[in-house]
């Protein structure tokens, strides 16, 4: 669709611009300001230049080591849940009935985890996986494996990943389902006449159609898993030790726990830049795909 060039359209965008700018630019400036300073209580601030950034990006310093460890944990978490949720989401979408009451009930159940408040997701999984009162923890102990997520780091990770898969796989599945529904029946009929195998249908008809929704799904899941705070905070509190302290948990610990505003601010800026860079790449790919599809 061709668009009209008209700068008066700014008036329509102005309310959004004002609202988001108020929420984004002012706090961001505060963070940038803090990141160049050091504080010693009593609201006394001292200019620290780029000191915090140098320390942060130097893995041998205490702050830098802590930052890179937390960054590594966040990246590992995002990769792990993407590696599970995307294939599982596609599988579930392929297995969903195409219409009828079964579909309606299935959709309602699938959407339910998405609308559970994030701290309640944490609570649910805390109650579900505790070895003394939880069904999941109790069952695993019952088959003879010693399971206690509050003491064992690997098991704490299993709980966090299982929780995220429970929470968000439905989003990927629903996106894929919407994508699959937009494939005309004629494609399948043509494939049947050609004698295509199930695998070939998936590879050459369904997967290309899913490309776009999968990009949206991966983007949303990457952003939200990389920024995850509430659920691990409730379930493991970052422990045992520091084994599940992902970036945002560490950030809140430094900012609101120790009140080290300078360090926390510098960390925030680097953190935000990482998220933005990844998202910019995804966004560019999406937009390029769109414009290619628009001009076949």
């Amino acid at each position: 669709m061709t668009k009209t060039v008209d700068n008066r359209a700014w008036f329509l965008v102005l309310p959004v611009f004002a609202l988001v700018a108020f929420n984004a630019i002012l706090p961001l400036m505060t963070v940038v300001n803090y990141s160049f300073q050091d504080s010693f209580g009593n609201n006394q601030f001292f200019w620290n230049g780029i000191g915090w950034y140098q320390e942060l990006l130097d893995p041998t310093s205490e702050l830098g080591g802590r930052f890179f460890a937390a960054l590594g944990r966040s990246a590992a978490f995002s990769l792990a849940i993407l590696a599970i949720e995307v294939p599982l989401g596609i599988l579930v979408a392929l297995c969903m009935p195409r219409s009828g009451t079964q579909l309606a009930i299935g959709l309602v159940i699938m959407a339910l985890p998405l609308l559970v408040p994030w701290n309640v997701v944490g609570t649910i999984w805390l109650l579900y996986t505790r070895s003394d009162i939880g069904l999941f923890g109790w069952l695993i102990n019952a088959v003879g494996i010693d399971f206690n997520a509050t003491r064992n780091a690997a098991q704490a990770w299993i709980v966090l990943i299982a929780m995220d898969v429970w929470h968000w796989t439905s989003l990927v599945a629903l996106l894929c389902f919407a994508g699959l529904k937009s494939i005309p029946d004629a494609y399948y009929q043509a494939a049947r006449i050609d004698g295509a195998s199930r695998l070939a249908i998936f590879r050459y008809i369904e997967l290309p159609k899913l490309g776009r929704v999968l990009m949206i799904g991966v983007l949303l899941r990457f952003m939200d898993s990389f920024m995850i705070y509430t659920e691990p905070f409730v379930v493991t509190g970052g422990g045992p030790g520091n084994s599940t302290t992902v970036l945002s948990i560490d950030l809140v610990k430094i900012a609101l726990g120790q009140f080290d505003l300078g360090k926390a601010a510098a960390m925030s800026i680097v953190y935000t830049l990482i998220v933005l860079t990844v998202c910019w790449v995804f966004y560019t790919v999406l937009v390029t795909r769109d414009s290619q599809e628009a001009q076949p």
Binding site: V16, V20, N23, A24, L26, P27, L28, T30, V31, M223, F226, M227, Y229, L247, S248, L251, V252, A255, L256, L261, A264, S268, Y271, T272, V275, L276, C279, W280, Y283
Partner: peptide
């Protein structure tokens, strides 16, 4: 794109400001 980046900004960053 600037609008979308705000959807992506980590809430932990903005808590204190």
């Amino acid at each position: 794109f600037w609008l979308l980046t705000n959807r992506m900004a980590p809430a932990a960053v903005f808590a204190l400001p």
